[in-house]
Design a binder for these strands. Sequence first.
DNA 1: TTGACATAGTTAGCTGGCTAACTATAATGT
DNA 2: ACATTATAGTTAGCCAGCTAACTATGTCAA
Lengths: 167, 167
Amino acid sequence: MLQLRDLPTTEVLTKFAKRYPDADITAVSSFLHLLRVATDLSIALDTCLSKHGLLQGRWWVLILLMREDSKTSTPSALADKAGVTRATMTGLIDGLEQSGLVARIYTKDDRRSVLISLTEAGQAKLDVVMPDYYRRLRQCMQALDEEKRRQLQQILGLINSGISAFI
Amino acid sequence: MLQLRDLPTTEVLTKFAKRYPDADITAVSSFLHLLRVATDLSIALDTCLSKHGLLQGRWWVLILLMREDSKTSTPSALADKAGVTRATMTGLIDGLEQSGLVARIYTKDDRRSVLISLTEAGQAKLDVVMPDYYRRLRQCMQALDEEKRRQLQQILGLINSGISAFI
DNA sequence: TTGACATAGTTAGCTGGCTAACTATAATGT
DNA sequence: ACATTATAGTTAGCCAGCTAACTATGTCAA
């Protein structure tokens, strides 16, 4: 998401601000650091998941299925919740099905639709991955007390409201 | 980076924490919100840039060139700073060269190497894009006073130090 | 001085997203 | 009741990253 490694120093930002007076140096700096840390977090998460033979896409599908009491859902619903297109979800399910972690179940009531079901093996995979993920995440966020976590959420809310300025 | 749209509610997290006692609910929640907002910011930035016929990759290359006093650099150096492989940089430069925004200059001193130079058209493009980007970013971050920006940077620093827990 | 290694750039082919187009089925309104 | 429209899933092909392998050039030590 943010590839850039060489974030601008204050000097560089000051130089740019001279040519482009609209530049708000602390705004740019906060923005880029936010993207940088979030990107590194996402990469680190992928590293963790890949140790279990998963990537974010397929992992989220398993989690979304586990959230359901029935341990089942449809590709469309999964696509909406996972934030990918239905076309992409077809591919994710293909992969998970081949690994035996989910199963396609064809029902009679709406013959356009398919039920995707978390298999025993899929649940077993989650029972290995999730504790590892939660332990690492707890460790990662350890340095933030509840007050700081609250502050972060509040700040993120403010930024989130501002995103529309880009569109 | 974080595709997932349907972030877990506190109820869902509580349910998961029952099965997986390592789960730290506010840690997970802060983590996911951070990724969610950052991803939306990145998408919004792409939207803004695409109005100018650019994507992040090519845009950063132009900016990296503009940072240099000579307005030139090499593909390798650009790749390092932009955080992409040299192979990817070849493609970015190909595109920018075709649009006339940069030029490849072959020098004599090291015949393995090429100098990439920001053209007049490239500088002119930045002179249109950057003010637009800075204006929107200022607007986006408007709701954060300097104190909150400082808090954010500090919190990001703490999280950043924790990322190693994932690796 | 020449053989081994290192560096710069490119190419080829993989991946996981995407959109657009397609098939099949269901729902709806006249 | 049937034509239109909407929905579910899939397929085909695009895009921007990636790795691995390759060419060309430069460096260095025996």
